[in-house]
Nucleic acid binder design. Structure first.
Length: 115
DNA sequence: GAAGTGACGACTT
DNA sequence: AAAGTCGCCACTT
């Protein structure tokens, strides 16, 4: 369950850390899961501080599978390399078969809400 | 202290 | 359908 005591940033990290290997999600999906469907920007901004943390920021892309954040990684294509090393294909900064590897916390993350 | 900016996304025209 | 506008809110200048 998501600890509501965490700050928004920490919640973002909390969800991002749960992205399974070989899957990806979007900023908006995380924002929606956090109950802030209009705060996709904040999610991206939060990832800014994810560097050095235990957060697979490379598995978070925009809703079309575009590696909008690659610019914020070291080097020029570190993000792409990380994704490719997880078995993904990236063409023109865009993930191929995005809908197949997309991981939506809303539907794939158990909520354990008392059931 | 106010204004501008931003790893986005949904709404409006 | 495509392009423009707004929201979200922390951070920077």
């Amino acid at each position: 369950m998501l600890p509501e005591t965490l700050s928004f940033f920490e919640k973002v990290y909390w969800v991002a850390r749960k992205i399974p290997y070989g899957r990806v999600t979007s900023y908006g999906a995380i924002a929606r899961y956090l109950g802030a469907p209009r705060s996709a920007r904040m999610v991206g901004y939060a990832m800014n501080g994810a560097s050095g943390k235990d957060v697979p920021a490379h598995r978070v892309v925009n809703r079309r599978g575009l590696l909008t954040g690659k610019h914020h990684f070291e080097g020029t294509n570190l993000m792409q390399q990380l994704l490719e090393s997880e078995g993904h294909k990236v063409v023109d900064n865009q993930l191929q078969d995005f809908d197949e590897i997309f991981w939506d916390p809303l539907t794939e993350l158990p909520d354990n809400s008392g059931a």
